[in-house]
Design a protein around this nucleic acid. Sequence first.
DNA 1: CGGTGGATTCTCT
DNA 2: GAGAATCCACCGA
Length: 189
Amino acid sequence: MARELLGWRVVSRIQGIRTSGRIVETEAYIGAHDPACHGAAGRTRRNRTMFGPPGLAYVYFIYGMHWCFNVVTGREGDPEAVLIRALEPLEGLDAMEHRRGRRRDLTNGPARLCQALGIDGTLDGHPLDRAPLVLEPPDSPPAPAPVGVSGRIGIRKARDWPLRFFLTTSSHLSSGPHLEAAPESVMRP
DNA sequence: CGGTGGATTCTCT
DNA sequence: GAGAATCCACCGA
């Protein structure tokens, strides 16, 4: 599902402002046997949405100041989700710039894209087939694009599991030292 | 450009 | 009380 979601669009309508972006980078968190998955240690108040039915938004707060947005993908009871790590901005660029307080680096990072689209904890558990936060499929047929795979970013446990997926030609991927940290783990299907 | 450390709050042990 | 699926300002080259 993490690979499949590349090319889909995330559309938000927050405070009457429409913003959207195309998914270019994702990470998979694959359930109770995945040590890096929030659901690995069982159901808690924080991660309960992960255990719900697929199609919900799992939004969690991290590092004292950031929100991150996941798409719940597992069956009810299975804590599986896809973290949306980067978008290509499409609509509402001015609103994104205003929310982010800068004109670059609007959506290249999981917390950055949440800030740009106005996503916060009030949307945790929201079904993604309706406003104010909607997941839309790509235009059919989707243009073929090379997909890169690497280890996941910013975690300690199971860091080398090849569960990060990205459109290699995108100029909107998450930046920083992480991207170059493990070039040998990047492969082309 | 790369490296470093601070911000800041919530959750669970 | 530790640590977290992060970001940003700042530093030096």
